[in-house]
Design a protein around this nucleic acid. Structure first.
Lengths: 337, 337
DNA sequence: CTGAAAGCGCTTACAG
DNA sequence: CTGAAAGCGCTTACAG
């Protein structure tokens, strides 16, 4: 980084103090219009670029939000980022995005980095394997507020924004029932994720309400990799009477499951209906896709998380006294085709 | 941001000078092992978190790379980001990503922001409409190196990494010819983009080499929106003898074009073959997709761009004397199904 | 091996 | 309305 023009240079040239120049550039009310004009004119002529690193340092504030997400190839997260960025932009805040790639070790490294860089707040989607929350506890101690997003930690003492997981699962399952399915499987999310249980619960409730017995063999846990979905599907297909409707924890899983059928049981591809969480932009291009999606409104969820975070940033002092916030976003069922 | 523990606090407690503490934490050779141990022990006990804002300020270096891309919903860019991030991580650099959403005004705002935040270097995919390069010239002046990526500016005085656009277009077009097509259309990229011409040229060369006359009616310019692709396709389909093979500037355009056929000319969907730039992860899930893609190796391109940028960051002094770098990445043809 | 001192560029409470 | 001065947390050239 070259040295560049500083307010000192400007002050020297105009025979003013640096205080005056600083105030003029910041539109301080105490400075006269002519002075402001002269300062701004020269700043412009000289291509003055304020050194934010110096401001951040001086003000103990970086005007930066950290975002930690598992993976940017997942459109759900990208939409959420866009929502958060919108709110951040309104507050003239920057956003730093970093990917954990679903690895808790990476996650810890990134949290540390964000801490060192003194972001003013953090929005985090924890990895599918994160169980140890100590890196985040530590964050609280040094006064950096965190809002968890989409995947709430099991420990309810943290603030989060998430979908109505149980309600959404209920709707997705019931839609399959309404389409006439009696044997309904569930591709369940990892045990390590709190929402896996919620979505399972919604599935169970839908069965119950519609007088369909719960069969534990119809629930297979997957870990969000293609292999595990393929394995679960092959288990399903081996059954005497395989499910004809499958509610997936997440629609990226449905896509893998559909992929599996195409490859191994092409005759079944039109006989099994899928529903699941996530109404993704890429569905537009698909011929074989879930019959219904739970719209998680990820853009709005991102906005909501950012709004909550800004509230915390503003109320920083009351950090230790304020009530924990758990925000739940309503989920809509979207039928495809 | 709370005040937190500083090296001064540690120095006070241990009856040392701040210089010693600073050096101990930075593993300076001049400090004795026992001293280092005592310092590190206390730093650890007290949860000391170095204030990077202060370091950046002091060192006139932020260890941060800026990335400006049009849109994170485009997987091509996400892969490139991942490549650049990998290289940055190896150099212990952070990456700030910002989206221009294809709007030059946004782009200018972001460049300004990156300037103020004194990123050490910038990797930029300009918007499809960017013609005025002055925001970037300005960057050079204050000593922030920039590497353009994927979409080289028309002005060749900038450094960039791009695909072998002409060669790739040649291969994609020739593949359609090899499949027996005689009437081959081209969905050309925006005139404002330099690579649109290159890809058109590759298309023309492939026709020529294979003794197929060039028909200007078979070239339609699109602007990367669905509407413009739909319009171009409807023009094609109105022709007496519409093209049976179409080489698209970019495969997201192919997807829109396929969408158009599905909707308006379902009987044609299996009669028109597409090829184009971009071998995207999402193709995995598609039944109707281009018959071939030009693999742009975006991950590797991202790495390459970051490597080049680091070279510039290191050689900062010779900024004005060094030769302009134009790196071209070889493109492979990937046949689908 | 350790420390005193200067300084990075900016903001702000205070004095005039 | 303007300015002098302190200080944010750190690094480093220099002295000892």
């Amino acid at each position: 980084m070259k040295k560049g023009v500083t307010i000192k240079d400007i002050a020297l040239k105009l025979n003013m103090s640096v205080s005056t120049v600083s105030k003029a550039l910041n539109n301080d009310l105490s400075i006269s219009i002519p002075t402001k004009d002269r300062v701004k004119q020269l700043a412009n002529d000289w291509n003055y670029v304020p050194n934010e690193a110096a401001r951040h340092f001086k003000l103990c504030k970086t005007f930066t939000l950290g975002l930690i997400i598992p993976n940017m190839l997942d459109q759900f997260f990208v939409l959420a980022i866009n929502g958060a960025e919108k709110i951040a932009a309104m507050e003239k805040y920057n956003v730093i995005i970093s990917q954990s790639h679903e690895d808790p070790l990476n996650e810890e490294r990134i949290v540390d980095l964000m801490k060192r860089n003194r972001v003013d707040g953090l929005i985090v989607v924890i990895t599918k394997k994160t169980e140890d929350m100590s890196p985040f506890l530590n964050l609280k101690n040094i006064g950096i507020p965190v809002v968890f997003f989409a995947r709430p930690p099991k420990d309810d003492s943290f603030d989060y924004v998430t979908a109505d997981n149980e309600g959404g699962a209920f709707k997705a399952t019931e839609y399959l029932i309404k389409r006439g399915h009696k044997r309904i499987g569930h591709l369940m999310g990892p045990e390590s994720m709190a929402i896996s249980q919620k979505r399972l619960q919604g599935y169970k409730t839908a069965l119950q309400k519609n007088k369909i017995g719960f069969d534990p063999h119809l629930v297979k846990v997957v870990d969000l990799t293609e292999e595990s979905t393929f394995f679960a599907m092959s288990q399903f297909m081996k059954m005497k009477s395989p499910p004809t409707g499958i509610f997936a924890f997440k629609n990226y899983i449905s896509l893998d499951a559909i992929e599996f059928l195409k490859k191994k049981f092409p005759e079944m591809i039109d006989k099994v209906d899928f529903s699941g969480f996530g109404n993704l932009p890429l569905f537009r291009h698909l011929d074989h896709k879930p019959v219904a999606s739970i719209e998680e409104s990820s853009y709005e969820m991102g906005e909501e998380a950012a709004r909550l975070l800004f509230r915390f940033i503003r109320e920083e002092d009351s950090m230790n006294t304020r009530a924990v916030q758990h925000i739940q976003i309503h989920c809509k069922l979207v039928v495809h085709k």
